[in-house]
Amino acid sequence: MVGHHYRVEDFYEVGREKVREYARAVQDTHPAHYDESAAKGLGYDGLVAPLTFVSIVGAIAQRRLFEEIVIGYDLSQIMQTDQRLVFHKPITAGDRLFCDVYLDSFRQVAGSDIIVTKNVITDQNDDLVQTTWTTLVGRTGGEVDENIAHAVKDVMMHVAS
């Protein structure tokens, strides 16, 4: 499975209000996230998204990975242990983001599976926006508390919406 690649079928269009909403959620008060004239003063045509805004795109992109490629995991039993982001250019309102997902590495340690994914985010001009590597630890099988499983499913559905 290592090396498996897919491109998310549809693009993610960055909305002005979504930038503001995300900035409030992560308590980032920089004016360029809220005020178009502040963003324009920095040389941007639209609001500038907070640096971690790409996590919205990543959650959508990785869903397919666990539904179709790396199957057998209950999402409530997967924990993100590390993430590395390389910023190539800012994300701004109006951008259309495309995501290529790669299964970068997979290994087993002490009964757990360590999965590293690589997401390459480009914009509508095919310019590189961000590259991210996410390390996840999970286990297949085993009993899962039904309440936890439902809670995680609800969170994932909310993030992907």
Rank of each mutant, 00 (worst) to 15 (best):
M1D: 03
V2M: 07
V2D: 04
V2K: 12
G3V: 08
G3F: 10
H4A: 06
H4N: 07
H5I: 08
H5C: 09
Y6L: 10
R7N: 06
R7F: 02
V8G: 02
E9W: 11
D10L: 05
F11W: 08
Y12Q: 05
E13N: 06
V14L: 12
R16S: 06
E17Y: 12
V19Q: 01
E21C: 02
A25C: 05
V26E: 01
Q27M: 15
Q27I: 04
Q27N: 12
T29M: 05
T29L: 07
H30V: 04
H30A: 12
A32T: 03
H33D: 00
H33M: 05
Y34V: 02
E36F: 04
A38D: 08
G43M: 09
L47D: 04
L47F: 08
V48P: 00
A49R: 04
L51H: 03
T52K: 00
T52P: 01
F53Q: 06
F53G: 00
V54M: 04
S55R: 06
I56M: 05
I56Q: 07
G58V: 07
A59S: 15
A59V: 10
I60E: 13
I60G: 14
A61N: 07
Q62D: 13
R64N: 02
L65P: 05
E67S: 04
E68S: 09
I69L: 14
V70Q: 12
I71P: 00
G72A: 09
G72M: 09
G72T: 11
G72Y: 10
G72Q: 10
D74I: 03
D74W: 08
D74V: 09
L75E: 00
L75C: 11
L75W: 13
S76V: 13
I78L: 15
M79C: 05
D82I: 03
R84D: 12
R84S: 11
R84Y: 14
V86H: 13
V86M: 11
V86T: 15
F87L: 14
F87I: 11
F87Q: 11
H88V: 05
K89M: 11
K89T: 09
T92M: 13
T92P: 00
G94N: 14
R96G: 10
L97P: 03
L97R: 09
Y102A: 02
Y102D: 09
L103E: 11
Q108T: 13
Q108R: 13
Q108V: 13
V109S: 10
G111N: 06
I114P: 07
I115N: 06
V116C: 04
T117I: 03
T117V: 03
N119Q: 15
N119C: 10
V120M: 04
V120L: 09
N125T: 00
N125L: 12
D126N: 15
L128W: 12
V129T: 04
V129F: 06
T131D: 02
T131N: 05
T131H: 08
T134F: 10
T135H: 09
V137N: 04
V137R: 10
G141I: 11
I148E: 14
A149L: 03
H150L: 15
A151N: 07
A151Y: 12
K153W: 07
H158K: 15
H158T: 14
A160D: 14
S161W: 08
S161G: 13
